[in-house]
Design a protein around this nucleic acid. Structure first.
Lengths: 340, 340
DNA sequence: CTGTTAGCGCCTTCAG
DNA sequence: CTGAAGGCGCTAACAG
């Protein structure tokens, strides 16, 4: 028994194909009685509705939304910030009967899916910059998050202001400060940035965070040389451990370390504690993001909480609404025990 | 400028549509020279290849694999075990140029996607049992993980044996034991199971784990009444906190608590520590899964480590290979400080 | 309210 | 290597 088509069913029931199609797609085009009659008959003979592949081609609509993540899914899917974002997106898509296709930001091109997805949510600048180009040149709706694409609606938080504030809260004049940053330079491994060329200074949010820190440092009369600024290639535990060790074994050891993510900050905290360093007595630490794990750890991390769930929901809503209106979401400072 | 079709391009280049199609899909059907000539010309005029929606319809193949998660994406995507599994899946799909569609296990039906995806990986029994039915009745390949679907290849670990072993390691005769389980009964909230009807006793892995515990308990001559067994509706922090409090405030307080996930165990551990309970002196705790966070916490959790990444990779490989061969993956006991 | 028809864009055969 | 033709399964427009 092969798969039934709409035509088969029409013949079987002795009505036209249009009527079957309408019964499924446009209830207003036929009487309610006829409609339920047809639907019941379909159920009986095992026809579950029009073939989706054909519908996609015909209607140019698939109910699939592509979520383009900044990097390979491999990295992104286990990142607590990203997965919370995905959670928000999926919640809204579900309400709207849309489906979620995850797309890696280091893919070669969007050609594989651009013809059938209904739109793109782009979470962070894709590692492969060509994707940004391609996204901008195609005509389906795009919403960007944590970065901007000319002419497309975007969702952001004010990274610079948030970073300024958390740094401000942690710093006192005379502090010796280090910064553990993310993808500030294009390096495959954890390292100090020295005077290497910076990566995407204009567009990357981590450079905005750096700007915020710098402002607070300047106000406190503190200078931080580029050999006290680290760059991690990815926001994960492996790189975080490397960075934590490097910075904690550096002489003279900083007494304030500003981290651009909670993952980094938490690992640094663990590392410091196991070295017997007193936090916040000898070392103050700040994070960024406000991930759940940060509130399960003691001492409690000082960090910037951004609601990734809300970000995801807003992004999805914005995409589905079709409006071209960017927005800036709020954040919240959480001053925990790691800055005393 | 509207989107170019294959036909437009053929006319433009003065060759037949078949040739263009072949240039993209069947290199052996034309000379290498002609092929590159065509491909270059296409790039120049901005034709990125055949329309995927049309290809999907025509070829009946989309290069999209649906990952059916046990529950709503909302829950699953932030679960560390599930997201690690997704990581494994995505790694293999990427190598094979396939794309990943996330599908919620509490959806009404698979009809929305069954016509165009190339196959299904089903991670845990879908909350909506109708999906299992539907999956089994359609003809595309399916691989199940952590549960079985008749006639379909499955990937599992031996939950019963693993649970037996971890319990065995923790237990001494005379212990007062409680169990924090997952979805043992069909309840919307955290509660003791008492004599409520059990859920999916045959098929659910959590009942296998319970069986394993029971065996070890029997051997140690310990009985655990059903009012010392809790069931959490989902594996998340909220329910874990509730369960932790309930069990720790119960009299007489157990001195061994077997948890069916690390999330539960970690929350219980935090809770116990903040109540000033000595672990493992006054209370031993075991987990299940071996999530990353468990190794960042002290005292180190005793747990069963299963490699979810490998599970995901195997599942994807199995699906793509098309073989109908089930497999059982290994696990590893990690005896940490929480059982002394 | 129903039936007919012309594509959506492509792939594959087949004869040349 | 080409050109033509027949669908894949459906929907939208139009005529009745």
């Amino acid at each position: 028994m092969k798969k039934l088509t709409l035509k088969d069913v029409a013949k079987e029931l002795g009505v036209s194909t249009a009527t079957i199609s309408n019964a499924f797609n446009r209830p207003d085009q036929l009487s309610a009685a006829k409609r339920t009659e047809i639907l019941e008959a379909c159920k009986k003979i095992g026809y579950t509705g029009p073939n989706r592949a054909a519908q996609i081609l015909r209607k140019g609509q698939s109910n699939i939304v592509a979520l383009v993540l900044a990097d390979s899914l491999d990295y992104m899917v286990t990142d607590p910030v990203a997965s919370t974002f995905i959670q928000g997106v999926s919640r809204v898509l579900r309400e709207n009967q849309k489906h979620l296709l995850l797309y890696a930001g280091d893919s070669e091109s969007i050609a594989d899916v651009v013809d059938f997805v209904d739109g793109f949510i782009c979470y962070g600048a894709p590692r492969n910059a060509a994707l940004s180009e391609q996204l901008n040149q195609q005509s389906k709706p795009v919403v960007t998050v944590d970065f901007n694409l000319e002419g497309r609606p975007a969702i952001n938080i004010d990274n610079e202001k948030a970073s300024y504030e958390i740094a401000k809260a942690a710093l006192k004049p005379g502090d010796h400060v280090a910064i553990l940053g993310l993808r500030l330079i294009d390096s495959p491994s954890t390292c100090r940035i020295y005077d290497n060329p910076l990566l995407n200074v204009e567009s990357s949010i981590t450079h905005r965070r750096l700007d915020g820190y710098s402002e607070a440092l300047k106000e406190a009369g503190i200078t931080v040389d580029s050999d006290w600024i680290w760059s991690l290639p990815e926001n994960n535990v492996v790189y975080a451990v490397q960075a934590a060790k490097e910075v904690l074994y550096s002489q003279p050891r900083p007494n304030v370390i500003l981290c651009m993510s909670d993952i980094i900050a938490l690992e640094l905290l663990q590392c410091a504690l196991s070295m017997g360093i007193d936090v916040p007595g000898e070392l103050k630490i700040t994070g960024f993001d406000g991930i759940e794990e940060a509130s399960r750890t003691r001492p409690y991390l000082s960090t910037v909480c951004q609601s990734s769930v809300e970000k995801g929901m807003q992004a999805a809503n914005l995409l589905l609404s079709g409006e071209n209106q960017s927005m800036s979401l709020s954040y919240e400072l959480k001053l925990g025990e790691t800055i005393g």
